[in-house]
């Protein structure tokens, strides 16, 4: 239906839409309580085990510079693989797997805070939504910078 390079997972953090390349997404799971690890910052609320793999939970709201909120029905973990890292990205909701035409990507708005702008490759208009494209290595880099 669409090429691997073009498939993106569309999800929402706060009231903004983000997209991750589907290649770095392993699975989507519903929210469940993570097991807290003593001595870690709040951005890392704990660990999860999914299919025998230990994932470190990342509160994307905090990483992206928003205030954290209590989990809701639509709250999801995006199980993210990048190199040897296994992260469970806590997002407000996952919308869809979509195909994005990257030729339509626009420059990152100057008004966007650095906390978000540093992770992004650019913004793309999908239907009537403005979608921020996340660059997985940059995400990791930002995470390491924070914790």
């Amino acid at each position: 239906m669409f090429d691997q390079a073009e498939a993106y997972l569309l999800f929402r953090v706060a009231d903004e839409q983000y997209a991750l390349p589907s290649g770095s997404v392993h699975e989507i799971v519903r929210w469940r309580a993570a097991v807290p690890v003593p001595g870690t910052p709040t951005m890392l609320p704990g660990i999860l085990v999914q299919r025998g793999v230990v994932y470190t939970v990342v509160d994307t709201r905090l990483l992206f510079g928003f205030a954290t909120t209590a989990p809701e029905r639509a709250t999801r973990y995006v199980l993210f693989h990048e190199d040897e890292h296994r992260l469970a990205l806590l997002v407000d909701t996952v919308l869809d797997l979509i195909a994005l035409d990257l030729t339509l990507s626009e420059a990152i708005p100057a008004t966007l805070p650095v906390a978000r702008a540093r992770l992004l490759r650019g913004v793309v208009r999908h239907t009537d939504l403005l979608v921020a494209l996340i660059e997985p290595p940059e995400l990791l880099a930002a995470l390491y910078a924070e914790v």
Binding site: L9, D96, L97
Partner: peptide
Amino acid sequence: LNAAIEAA
């Protein structure tokens, strides 16, 4: 969604 991800 997961199936689609798998398929992709």
